[in-house]
């Protein structure tokens, strides 16, 4: 049987480098996810407001994010804005900006959906007990909305983690880029590394995303 080429990972610091690359990907996603959740909550509440102009602007923002491929956004921010505006933006910051820009819009829409899915009479039931609007939100509406939100937002989080593989296109050395480098460097001695190393990369993504989506399934069942 031919070798799978996994052995190259045990040469020198190759495996450690791969893990470092993974950390870069995870770090970009973690920061972007944190920003997306915080601002997404605000965005979602604003999207349920009665102000039509505000709603239209937010709607437009959401549509732009949905229509634009993330890669195009990365190129615009990293190559485009740095040239036109002349500022100095590192690739990693560009990635975080793009992923947050995407995450806030999508999270906002999820929050909006969760908020409007709470029946109006739940608000009324709380008010009939003398609760003020802020108490109603805090104790009755938000806890219910967040329960509906968590499975959906975890889905978004895993999508964001997977999509960080694009950031190597703007020169960030994350796990996929490291894998490519290792494969290139060992092309002669172990040509099969192209299979083994990418398989390990797959496994690493799986190890990160799978527990997260299991958690979503668990919460969905528990709070159904």
């Amino acid at each position: 049987m031919q070798s799978l080429g996994i052995d190259v990972l045990f040469k020198g610091t190759n495996f450690l480098r791969l893990l470092e690359g993974l950390w870069v990907a995870v770090r970009i996603s973690l920061i972007s996810v944190a920003i997306s959740i915080a601002l997404g909550l605000v965005m979602g509440m604003l999207m349920t407001s009665k102000n039509r102009i505000l709603k239209m602007i937010l709607r437009l923002y959401l549509e732009i994010v949905r229509i634009m491929p993330q890669m195009v956004l990365l190129f615009i921010v990293y190559f485009g804005t740095t040239r036109v505006f002349g500022w100095n933006l590192s690739a990693e910051y560009s990635a975080i900006i793009v992923f947050s820009f995407w995450g806030v819009a999508e999270m906002g829409d999820l929050v909006r959906g969760a908020l409007i899915s709470i029946p109006k009479i739940q608000y009324e039931s709380a008010q009939a007990l003398g609760m003020t609007p802020s108490m109603t939100y805090l104790y009755v509406i938000l806890p219910q909305a967040i329960r509906r939100l968590i499975p959906l937002s975890i889905n978004l989080i895993t999508r964001m983690i997977k999509t960080t593989s694009l950031v190597m296109m703007i020169g960030i050395v994350e796990v996929l880029k490291v894998a490519q480098q290792i494969i290139e460097a060992n092309r002669r001695s172990s040509p099969n590394a192209v299979f083994g190393v990418f398989a390990v990369v797959f496994l690493l993504y799986f190890l990160i995303c799978w527990p997260i989506s299991k958690l979503a399934g668990y919460l969905e069942k528990r709070w159904a």
Partner: peptide, 20 residues
């Protein structure tokens, strides 16, 4: 309004307990 509503108890057709 909050003060006045505390004096008026209301029960709805669909109960409207808080599910969480």
């Amino acid at each position: 309004i909050s003060k006045m509503r505390q004096k008026i108890g209301m029960v709805f057709q669909s109960y409207e307990l808080f599910p969480h």
